[in-house]
C-alpha cells in the first residue's frame, strides 16, 4: 500500500504536510530538512522541484526556486540526494513541480526514479486532468505513484467529483483563488470549505495556500483531514543558521 494511503488509514485528523523547495536554503539541505520535518512531527513532506517560471507561486516560493536553481538543484541532482533516504525517513513524500522539467527528464524515467527512491506521490499543477487521463495515467499506475490534483473555490461541484474520481491519495483544496503565499482571508472561504465537506468525497482532503500558523492550521483542520504549509515554512528557514532547531520551533508553534 502506498505510504500516503497508509497515513490516511491510520490518521484522519490534523495531518500536517509541509512543503520545502529541494536544494534550499543550501543545495545539500534537502535531506537534513526532511529529517528534521519528520523528527519534529510533520506527517507528510512535499518537496518542491525548482522551476525557472513557477506560474502558480507567489514571490516567496519563486525566490526559493531561483535560489535552489542557483545552488545547482535539478531533478537529476534531487534523485541523487534521495537515493537511500527511506532508510531514515518513513513519512510519505510527494514531489511537487512544473511539467516542463519532468517532460525533459522523461515522464517514465521520472516515475521510475520516484518509485525506486521511495517517493509516493507527485503534484504537477500544470498537468491538467484531461491530459493526465489521456497520456499518463497508466504510467503512474504502473509505478504505483499517486498524482494529486488541486481544486479551488471556483471549481464546480461536478468537476470536484470528477477530480475526486480520478485522484489518488488525497484531494488538495486550494484555500482561495490565489498563487501561493497570498494573505487572503480564510474566513471568507467558509462557504467553500462547507461545500467541500458536504460533498463527502471518496478521498481525504488537505487544505493548502495561506496556511501559515496555528490559527490558520486549526481553521483548515476544522473542515478537512489536515493542511499544507509552504510559504510560511520557507520564510522560517530561508535565513536559518540552525535548521533543526528552527524547524522544531516552527512545527511546535503550528501544532501547539
Amino acid at each position: 500500500m502506498n505510504r500516503i494511503d497508509q497515513l490516511f488509514a491510520a490518521k484522519k485528523e490534523r495531518i500536517l504536510n509541509i512543503y520545502c523547495t529541494a536544494g534550499f536554503p543550501a543545495l545539500e539541505d534537502t535531506l537534513p530538512v526532511m529529517t528534521a520535518l519528520q523528527a519534529h512531527g510533520a506527517d507528510m513532506i512535499e518537496l518542491g522541484m525548482p522551476f525557472s517560471d513557477p506560474l502558480a507561486d507567489g514571490p516567496v516560493i519563486q525566490d526559493s526556486s531561483t535560489r535552489a536553481l542557483q545552488n545547482g538543484m535539478s531533478i537529476k541532482k534531487l534523485f541523487e540526494q534521495l537515493k537511500g533516504f527511506r532508510k531514515n525517513i518513513q513519512v510519505p513524500v510527494i514531489l511537487m513541480g512544473y511539467l516542463n522539467p519532468v517532460l525533459q527528464f522523461g515522464v517514465e524515467a521520472f516515475l521510475q526514479q520516484c518509485a525506486e527512491t521511495g517517493v509516493d506521490g507527485i503534484i504537477l499543477p500544470d498537468l491538467p486532468m484531461a491530459e493526465y487521463e489521456q497520456d499518463y495515467k497508466p504510467l503512474f499506475e504502473k509505478y504505483g505513484l499517486h498524482l494529486i490534483f488541486l481544486v479551488t473555490p471556483e471549481t464546480s461541484d461536478a468537476r470536484i467529483r470528477q477530480i475526486d474520481a480520478v485522484s489518488n491519495g488525497f484531494v488538495y483544496a486550494v484555500s482561495s483563488s490565489s498563487t501561493t503565499g497570498k494573505d487572503k482571508d480564510m474566513k471568507g472561504q467558509q462557504a467553500y470549505f462547507e461545500r467541500l465537506k458536504k460533498l463527502q468525497l471518496q478521498h481525504p482532503v488537505l487544505i493548502g495556500f495561506g496556511i501559515k500558523d496555528k490559527a490558520t492550521f486549526d481553521a483548515a483542520c476544522a473542515y478537512s483531514n489536515g493542511a499544507i504549509i509552504g510559504t510560511a515554512f520557507i520564510k522560517a528557514v530561508e535565513n536559518s543558521q540552525a535548521l533543526d532547531k528552527d524547524i522544531q520551533q516552527f512545527i511546535q508553534t503550528v501544532l501547539s
Partner: peptide, 21 residues
C-alpha cells in the same frame, strides 16, 4: 528550442537540458 511547455502551451521553447527556460 525543443518541445516543452511554456505559458500553458506545448510548443518549441528555449530551455536547458534540465527543462529550465
Amino acid at each position: 528550442g525543443k518541445p516543452g511547455v511554456i505559458h500553458a502551451s506545448k510548443t518549441l521553447l528555449m530551455q536547458t537540458e534540465d527543462g529550465q527556460i
